[in-house]
Write a protein that binds this DNA or RNA. Sequence first.
RNA 1: GCCUUUGUAGCUCAAUGGAUAGAGCAGGACGUUUCUACCGUCAAGGUUGGGGGUUCGAGUCCCUCCAAAGGCACCA
Length: 550
Amino acid sequence: MFGLEKIASKIEIPPEGVGADLAIPCFREKPEDVAEKIRGLNNPLFGSVVVTGRYVNISFNLNALTEHVLHEVMTKKESYGWNASGAGKTVMLEYSAPNIAKPMHMGHARNNAIGHALANIYKANGYTVITTNHFGDWGMSLAKIMLAFQKWGDRKAFKKDPIRTLLDLYVRMTKEIKSSPELEDEARELFRKLEGGDVELRALWQEFRDISVKNFERVYALFGINFDLWHGESFYETFIKEAVDEALVKGAAAYGDPTSPSGLRGAGPLTTMASSGQGRPVVVNLDKFGLPSFLLVKSDGASLYSARDIAVGRWRLKEYPQAEKIIYVVGHEQELYLRQIFKTLGLMGYPEEKFKHVSYGVVTINGKKISTREGGIVFLEDGLKEAVVKTKGIKEVGVGAILYNMLSMGREHDIAFSWDAALSIQGNSAPYIQYAYVRAKAILEKAGDVSASLPTNHYPLITPSSHEARLLKRIAEFPQAVRQAYSLDAPHIIATFLNEFAQEFSRFYDAVPVLEVGEARALRLALVVASAQVIKNGLWLLGIEVPERM
RNA sequence: GCCUUUGUAGCUCAAUGGAUAGAGCAGGACGUUUCUACCGUCAAGGUUGGGGGUUCGAGUCCCUCCAAAGGCACCA
C-alpha cells in the first residue's frame, strides 16, 4: 500500500492546459484509490479532486485558499515564505575570499552574489548561518607585490589610489619576472623574512592589509554584505604545522619520493614516517578513491596551500562543532582540489560529509577569463558605481541588475559578461521585477491608508481563470521556491520564480483596475499588498533591495 | 590519457523521471499609460549536439560518439 507521505512527495504543479492546481501522477497505484485518500483528508483548501487518465488532479477551493494565503502574508510579512526546516541547525558559509593588495573585479561579483544569496536562503529556511570571509593575506603573490613596492613604489601615488597603484606594481612585477627570474627568488626571500617576523615588512604588510580591507568593505557596503568572521589566510599560519603532523600521524599523509618528477601522473613510492628525513615532500595518496595524489609540503619543507586548507577545515570543525555543514562557495576550477582536501580530512578521521563545495562557472569578458595579473580589469567598485549612474542613480536598481545577472542562471553555467545585458532593464532582470514592486507601491500610495480597508476574514469569491486567482496561486507557490532553492543550493530558482511572478503581477496590473470602487476592491488591494511583499522577500533572498521609486 | 562541468528557439536562459518542452531579447502585428528607461496582448520561431539503451513515460537516468570550458605534485 501507499502512505500519504509517499503521495505528498509526488505532488506537482500540472501544466497550464490541465486546469488543475495540483497533480499526482499515479502509474503504480490506482488513481481512484489515491483520489479517495485525498478526499478523505478533508483538506479545506482542496476543492475538486478528479481523476484524469493516470493523474489525480486537485483544484483549490479558491475562497479558502484566498483566505489562507492572504492571512499568511499579512501576518508573516517579512517572513512570508520562510520555513523552520533548519531550526536549531547551523551552517558555516565561506565566500568572497578576495586577495589583499588586489582589487575585486567582475569575477568576484558572482561569488559575492551567490554567497550572499545562499546565506539568506539558508536563513529563510530556519538555519543559523555563520558567514566567513577567507581572504588572501599571505603567500607569494602578496610577497611579489611587497617586493615591487619596495623596488618601484611611489608613496604619493599609493596614498592617492592605493589599490590601483598596487595593481600596477603587480602587473609590472609579473612582466619583469619573465625577463628576470631572479626576482622570484627575491620575493621568496622577502616572504621568508615576513614569516620570520621582520618588523619593517610586518608593518608594510599590515598597511596593505588594512587598506585592502577598507576597500573590500566599500564593495560589501554596496552589496549589503556582512561577514561574521574575517579570518585571512595568515590567521591559520600557526595551525599549519600541527595539521600536517596530524595528517602524518593519522596516516592520511606520508613522506614521498623527492625524485618523483613533477608533471608525472600518480604519486611516487611512499615511505613510512620512520624513514622520513630531509628533502622529502609530504604526500597524500588518494589512489584508492580514484583521485590524484597531491602534496601538502614541498621537498624544501615549505608548506603548500593545501596544507593551509587542511588546517582551515580542521579549525572550523573544532571551533564550530555545531555547524552541520561547512559550505565553500568557490569556482568550479577548484572542484578536484577541494575534493582532495575534503577526502584528506576524512582520512584524518574528520567528518568529511560536513564539507560541501558549492561551485560555479567562470565569468568571462570578451571571451577571456578575467585575470588580475594582466591588468586592464574593471574594478568591481567602479563597475557597480557606473551601473548605478546608468540606472538614474538608483543604487538598488544598478546594483540589483548586476546581482540578478549573476544569479538568474544555474550556477554551473559559465557567464559571458556584458554590460549591456547586465544592465538591461526589461525582460528577465532585476529592474523588471523591481519595477513591478514600485508599481504595486504606487497603487497602494494612491489608495491611501490601505490597512483599514483590507478584508480581515472574508474574501469574495474569485473565479478560477481570473487574474486575481492566477496571482494568488503564484503567491501561494513562493514558499515552495524557498525550499527548493535551499535544497539545491540554487539561487536561480528564486530568480526564475520572481521573474514569473513579476510577469503575472504585470498582467494583473495591466488588466485589473485595482482602485475602481466596488466589491472587488478590498481583495485586489490585498493582492497588491501581498504581491509587493512577495517580491520584496524574494529579492531579499537574492541580496537585492527594492527601490521605493524608479 | 583520466576527472568535473556545459550543450534546449536566431541570441541569453528555464523546465523535483510525468500531461502539448517554457520565458526574455531580437524580428512581425496590435494595445495601453493606476508616475517611467516601461508595461501588456496575439502570431511566428524546437529532430532538447548525434546515435543506442532503461522505463508505462526521457531535455532529465545509463552507454557511446561529437563539441566547448576547466582541472589533474613541489603555483596560490
